[in-house]
Design a protein around this nucleic acid. Structure first.
Length: 832
RNA sequence: GCCGCGGUAGCCCAACCUUGGUAGAGGCGCUGCACUCAGAAUGCAGAGGUUGCGGGUUCGAAUCCCGCUCGCGGCACCA
């Protein structure tokens, strides 16, 4: 067939997309004997239109998927929909369209856009989290975890988002605002369901060690978020009472410098220890603190405030009484909710002590030998480790040793223990919304008067979302929507059959994305969430691509879930993903985030329409390294398009070589052509291995330039070499611009699809040059450039270099002190 | 404040990690030439640098080490 002279992507792209689909080329599991690669991009929430972030995200995975397919792997590269969630429900509140209807519309248009970009997905494994066949397994997991004590119901202060009208998790609160809608988050006292993720805090922390191929920034954010700290709990007896205040400290070595103790305002001992004459003031302070949210109370820059309770605690080592205060900066849900204050050696305690004129006692001196001034002359807290002073039998010890010995002593005396605390909290996951997975729990007054909740029996799953009158139920006001659906919420108790009520709350959608990667392995399996045999073949995910914004949400939750799945005997792996790639942001051409507000958005569909998918792909991948942000540039898009036009023109002008054969030898232009092809294979392959897609494309551009320079092939050898070169071109283009690649391959006689061809190994003999340029330096300064045969030995190179006139001039009258020889690069004469 | 990422030609970026070795692979823009009646398109050629700053190691530093600076992102009263 003959190629059109003009490159018209619209004429070829839809054709190839249809052919790929009809032939099922991207289906996984078709090469049972081959090694596997599981390549995955983060499950998208199907908004109506794709944005450039999606395009880039899926491209990074797609290049890999196509490349490994050509390398002979059985590749699993699936796609699906995070279809439950707030946006569709919020839209429904506005216009009355049922979330299921809108979501399906969105999926249809989103999927059409994905198709138009030529991604290599196995659509036979498509997953949709809003289908009961999917979310029934959320419910199944819930019940398994309930039985194992990994799910529980608690009554506590929760983060209430005033915009989303629902509780959200700690991880979803950013600077006191909702991570999703930016509305203020307030405290609310309410019952909620939680996953006991903190049981796995240590395991999740330890697991980070084996995640060598995760970006440091993600693992360090997780480490930070888990927030392990080693310290000790110590009991302080309350003077004149049987009560004890248990404090948590990481600096037990400073115990002798403790001059007061502080309780959180909502600590349970506050009411018990407060002296009668202080009660009015303390109550007022507690009430005031209860009125402000935790977030405001503890925000950066919030001034430290507190009141004296009138009670005293006794230092367990010295017996010295110290006043007990309550203050805003002490949190009831961290450590023991009480701290021992050592103002000389803690910045917060110092500030507080200064404000309320509490004593400051120095008990650590710098290891350097410098002496700190007395407490009241101290200008700030000395918080480093040092040497203990005024600390009884521990004086003279270093902080580290003192920490161990003092912890051992309190433990021996039964007044405390060495302990580890985590900043991470359990994951509260009940949501007061409709468009989520129903929590499979029933409340029966008769057999469950304490309202602990009775699990729905497994054989009654799924608990389906009911059909609703959208406008009546989804109002955005009042109780959870499901509570309004009488026909659904009222149900017989599964235990005793009496009238009972269903739990009207639904699950956080982060539950859905905790295990979807395993559902892809057997998307229609109905005996379990997925087939454990398939898990053995395919897990873990080899490459996972997504935005770094999920570092402490999804990426932590699904690591947790993975461990649970292993304990349930479903999956063989501790960690879900071997290599994580976090892609950078595609900004507008003005350097600002793409948004309607700035009018700087570029719709992927418009680029595909104007230039074709191959240009869109090539540009986005060429614009920079995967992890880096970049600014959109129309000029660079034009550049990518121009490049593909050059590719097209090259292929169209050499059609005459299509049937060429030649057994060799190859010399001159023919050899040059072959060298260029093999160098390109080497370079592009190595660049893809390194995930350096931008330089891989640069390598293909260089290759194209080289083929233009070669000119028209004339001899049989030149024609055969050019044919080989064009076939190589189709191969290296396939991961990036697959449509044009297949079109070229077809013209040059390929059978089937390029992506099913083998990525050829380059010939080592063809990637080294016969002559190599050497730089000649004198005292490190470049003086000449010489060309010598590639295999030339040191003496030979030196002789050529010494013979050079410029080198002679630079060395004239000087003595040679040293000669440096770097094979294949340079020589350096050190003279003086 | 702590952690991470980045600063190379007018612009986007390679080379840095893995081996310290001529600062340039690629793209955009610019200039010139060819083609053309002319332009567009295309092809070919070219110019362009104190590698953020200072110091150290070395025969030799964009690269390794130390200090600083600027920009971006994350976390931050967690005892």
């Amino acid at each position: 067939m003959a190629m059109n002279e003009r490159y018209e992507p619209q004429a070829i792209e839809a054709k190839w997309q249809t052919r790929w689909e009809e032939a099922g080329v991207f289906r996984a599991g078709t090469r049972p004997g081959a090694p596997k690669k599981y390549i995955l991009e983060m499950l998208p929430y199907p908004s109506g239109k794709m944005h450039m972030g999606h395009v880039r995200n899926y491209l990074l995975g797609d290049v890999y998927a196509r490349y490994f397919r050509m390398k002979g792997f059985d590749v699993l590269h699936p796609m699906g929909w995070d279809a439950l969630g707030l946006p569709a429900e919020n839209a429904a509140i506005k216009d009355g369209v049922h979330p299921a209807v809108r979501t399906q519309e969105n999926i249809d248009s989103f999927k059409a856009e994905i198709r138009s970009l030529g991604y290599s997905y196995d659509w036979t494994r498509e997953v949709n989290t809003s289908h009961p066949e999917y979310y029934r397994w959320n419910q199944w997991f819930f019940i398994q975890m309930l039985e194992r004590g990994l799910v529980y119901r608690r009554f506590s202060k929760v983060n209430w988002c005033t915009g989303c009208h629902t509780v959200i998790a700690n991880e979803q609160v950013k600077e006191g605002k909702c991570e999703r809608c930016d509305s203020p988050v307030v405290d609310k006292e309410t019952p909620e369901w939680a996953f006991r993720i903190t049981k796995y805090s240590q395991a999740l922390l330890d697991g980070l060690e084996q995640l060598k191929e995760w970006p440091e920034r993600v693992t360090s954010m997780q480490r930070n978020w888990i927030g392990r700290s080693e310290g000790a709990e110590i009991d302080f007896a309350v003077k004149g009472s049987d009560e004890k205040v248990r404090v948590f400290t990481t600096r037990i070595d400073t115990l002798y410098g403790c001059t007061y103790v502080v309780l959180a305002p909502d600590h349970k001992l506050v009411a018990k220890v407060t002296a009668p004459e202080r009660r009015a003031e303390v109550d007022a302070f507690v009430a005031k603190m209860a009125a402000v949210s935790k977030v405001d109370r503890t925000a950066e820059g919030a001034t430290k405030e507190g009141v004296f309770t009138g009670a005293y605690a006794l230092n367990p080592f010295t017996g010295q009484p110290v006043p007990i205060w309550i203050a805003n900066f002490v949190l009831s849900d961290y450590g023991t909710g009480a701290v021992m204050s050592v103002p000389a050696h803690d910045a917060r305690d110092f500030e507080f002590a200064r404000k309320y004129s509490l004593p400051i006692q120095v008990v650590i001196q710098p290891a350097s030998g410098d002496k700190l001034p007395e407490g009241d002359k101290l200008e700030g807290a000395f918080t480093e480790y040092g040497v203990l002073v005024g600390s009884g039998e521990f004086s003279g010890l270093g902080s580290e040793e003192a920490r161990r010995k003092m912890a051992a002593k309190v433990e021996a005396e039964g007044r405390g223990k060495a302990t580890v605390t985590y900043r991470q909290k359990d994951w509260g996951f009940s949501r007061q919304r409709y468009w989520g997975t129903p929590i499979p729990i029933v409340y029966c007054e008769k057999c469950d008067p304490e309202r602990r909740g009775i699990p729905v029996p497994l054989d009654q799953l799924p608990v389906r979302l009911p059909e609703i009158d959208t406008q009546a139920v989804l109002t955005g006001k009042g109780e959870p929507p499901l509570a309004k659906v009488a026909s659904w919420v009222n149900t017989p108790c599964p235990k005793c059959g009496s009238p009972a009520r269903r739990e009207p709350e639904t699950m956080d959608t982060f539950v859905d994305s905790c295990w979807y990667y395993a559902r892809y392995l057997s998307p229609h399996y109905d005996a379990a969430p997925f087939d454990p045999a398939e898990a053995k073949r395919w897990l873990p995910v080899d490459v996972y691509v997504g935005g770094p914004e999920h570092a402490v949400m999804h990426l932590l939750y699904f690591r947790f879930w993975t461990r649970v799945m292993k304990e349930l005997g479903l999956s063989p792996v501790d960690e879900p993903v071997t290599r994580l790639v976090t892609q950078g942001i595609v900004n507008g051409s003005d350097g600002r985030k793409m948004s309607k507000r700035w009018g700087n958005s570029v719709a992927p569909a418009s680029i595909v329409k104007k230039y074709g998918a191959d240009t869109a792909r090539t540009y986005v991948l060429f614009a920079g390294p995967p992890e880096r942000d970049f600014d959109w540039s129309d000029a660079q898009v034009e550049g990518a398009f121009r490049f593909l036009k050059r590719v097209w023109t090259l292929a169209a002008t050499h059609e005459a070589v299509a049937g060429a054969t030649h057994a060799g030898p190859f010399e001159g232009k023919a050899l040059e052509t072959r060298r260029a092809a093999h160098k390109c294979l080497k370079r592009v392959g190595e660049a893809i291995d390194r995930l350096s897609f931008n330089t891989a494309i640069a390598g293909i551009m260089e290759y194209i330039n080289a083929l233009y320079a070669v000119g028209t092939p004339e001899t049989p050898a030149e024609k055969a070499a050019m044919l080989e070169a064009l076939r190589v071109l189709a191969v290296v283009l396939t991961p990036f611009a697959p449509h044009i690649a297949d079109e070229i391959a077809e013209v040059y006689g390929a059978k089937g699809f390029t992506v099913n061809q083998e990525w050829p190994a380059f010939d080592p003999a063809l990637v080294v040059d016969e002559e190599i340029p050497y730089a000649v330096q004198v005292n490190g300064k470049l003086r000449a450039e010489i060309k010598v045969p590639a295999e030339a030995a040191e003496a030979e190179v030196r002789a050529v270099a010494e013979a050079d006139e410029r080198v002679k001039a630079a060395m004239a009258g000087k003595t040679l002190r040293k000669f440096v020889f770097v094979p294949k690069r340079l020589v350096n004469f050190v003279v003086g």
